[in-house]
Design a protein around this nucleic acid. Structure first.
Ligand code: ZN
Ligand code: ZN
Ligand code: ZN
Ligand code: ZN
Lengths: 165, 165
DNA sequence: TTATCTAATGTTATACCATAACAGTAAAGG
DNA sequence: CCTTTACTGTTATGGTATAACATTAGATAA
């Protein structure tokens, strides 16, 4: 399981309130429709679960919650919803944690890096435009053409540094 | 399984020859001893397998080869050897592939990014000093202190771009 | 509307990745 | 030597992910 204690104001300043969650869901739905995609009940609920959770959740953890609410009980139910969200820029996959997190800036074309606190397990989405540019440079030296990248850092979030200082 | 066809001169310029492999193994052994670590037969052979392979190998793939040569047959045999190599800077874990690759610059303290070709499955280790610096900057904005990072890009290697052009 | 087509959901089954726990063995140090 | 520690091997289990197929719901068009 991917657990974490919540360091308030750290990991989720922009999607913590329930009003915000509803607004994000609605605008996600509009954007999805605009691209000819459907934010169906399982998908919408999956996104909502991610938005309400502080940090990243594993697929099976999400599956449990979905199933408890009457959705299917088997892994593909969760994986399909999660893959949909990732493909539509509504969530990100955190490879180091084998987990998923809601996108902090849905609808914006962006490069993200993820900052994973090994003390409180929070996951912060940081802007990675500069990182991405540097990576593109490094790839170019090797003649490599990048399609997409995974940038994840492990360490300590601000709150946890203070605590252990 | 993690397969890949070999694009000569691309992924493994510096550890392709068998003479080089032997030399790398020996110097790895010296360095290990110097730190009070032992490059035992399984570990040495595991590193050799990684060095000879072009690209990344999964733990079970390595396990098969080790077992075929008289080493143990169970997963921990491979995982322990691989973890040793990673901890001693002789190999890297490629998270996107759930696989491992020999370090291209063992013994040098370095930041690496991995360029994964989705056509030929080759994995190239690129210098990521600048990328790392940019990531450190991005983290600093969030007050995050990085311990270690995973930087992996997926796309097309030089050889495969030419092929498909 | 109703027939048809397509996308989405749900299931079973299976494959793949990784580690805990413990027993036996080999190496290092007194 | 004998003790201690590190390493190897095993069994057993847990966690992650997808293939394949049946069913249902939505969209499309006659
Ligand atoms: Zn995002
Ligand atoms: Zn923290
Ligand atoms: Zn390296
Ligand atoms: Zn290639």
């Amino acid at each position: 399981m991917v657990t974490q204690s919540h360091q308030d104001g750290f990991c989720c300043a922009d999607h913590s309130g329930s009003a915000n969650v509803a607004a994000i869901l609605d605008s996600a739905e509009s954007r999805a429709r605009a691209q000819g995609a459907r934010l169906t009940p399982v998908r919408r609920r999956t996104l909502e679960i991610l938005l309400q959770s502080h940090g990243a959740l594993g697929a099976y953890e999400i599956l449990d919650r979905l199933n408890a609410e009457g959705f299917g009980s088997q892994p593909p139910v969760a994986y399909r919803a999660l893959n949909f969200l990732v493909e539509h820029g509504l969530a990100h996959r955190i490879r180091r944690l084998n987990a998923f997190t809601a996108c902090a800036h849905p609808g914006h074309d962006h490069r993200a890096a993820f900052l994973i606190c090994e003390t409180c397990n929070s996951v912060t989405e940081a802007d990675a435009v500069a990182v991405s540019a540097a990576l593109g440079q490094a790839a170019q030296v090797a003649g490599f053409q990048i399609t997409r990248a995974t940038i994840e850092a492990v360490g300590q979030c601000r709150a946890c540094q203070v605590t252990s200082a």
